[in-house]
């Protein structure tokens, strides 16, 4: 019941790609804010962690967070962000996926989605450390990644959950989610 069908897979990858396009536009905003307000810039960073948790909240199936994250990253890579974003997409998606897996893919709350975002943030922090940011002053590291983690929670927890709720209202989720027990019993009446 929980396995990804071809339809689910194509929708997951589509979500990743749409996020890739959105991130391209988000990048413009980010670049404008970048030099003027370093704090605001880190607070906008959560957008980059949103794709995986968002896909899982929408489809509620194992594997979606990871696949959507890679799809988003590969679009960013082709759109000129450089293929190193694939490594980040891989690590972030894996972290979010593992967090959802730890709750047996049964929790869709703000808290769990937010934590998945923070896990993605930690994964990207790990890669940044290997890359060479470990040599920053400790206070700078804490400020930069602390703000990023807060932003990750806000974007992947609060924002993603509410946007998925709004999408549920449009009715598209009925196309993709597994049919509920409740809906079967309704047929019997």
């Amino acid at each position: 019941m929980k396995k990804l069908k071809f339809t689910d897979l194509l929708i997951t990858i589509m979500i990743g790609v749409v996020f890739g396009v959105l991130m391209k536009f988000w990048d413009d905003l980010y670049t404008v804010v970048k030099p003027i307000m370093p704090v605001a810039r880190q607070l906008l960073y959560g957008m980059w962690f949103m794709v995986g948790p968002f896909a899982f909240l929408l489809l509620r199936k194992p594997g979606t967070a990871f696949i959507a994250s890679i799809a988003g990253a590969s679009l960013s890579a082709f759109a000129g962000h450089g293929i190193e974003v694939l490594m980040y997409g891989f690590a972030q998606g894996l972290a979010a996926e593992l967090l959802f897996a730890a709750f047996r893919y049964r929790r869709y709350s703000i808290l769990i989605a937010g934590l998945a975002g923070v896990a993605s943030c930690l994964a990207s922090f790990g890669l940044d450390l290997i890359y060479g940011y470990a040599a920053l002053e400790t206070w700078a590291l804490i400020v930069k990644y602390g703000l990023r983690a807060i932003s990750a929670f806000i974007f992947t927890g609060i924002f993603a959950v509410f946007i998925v709720k709004a999408l549920e209202a449009t009715g598209v989720t009925s196309l993709i989610r597994p049919v509920d027990k409740k809906e079967y019993t309704m047929l019997d009446q």
Partner: peptide, 14 residues
């Protein structure tokens, strides 16, 4: 921005 965009893309992908 995202709600109409996703609703449309999901329908199309499906």
């Amino acid at each position: 921005y995202t709600v109409p965009l996703f609703a449309q893309s999901i329908r199309r992908a499906q």
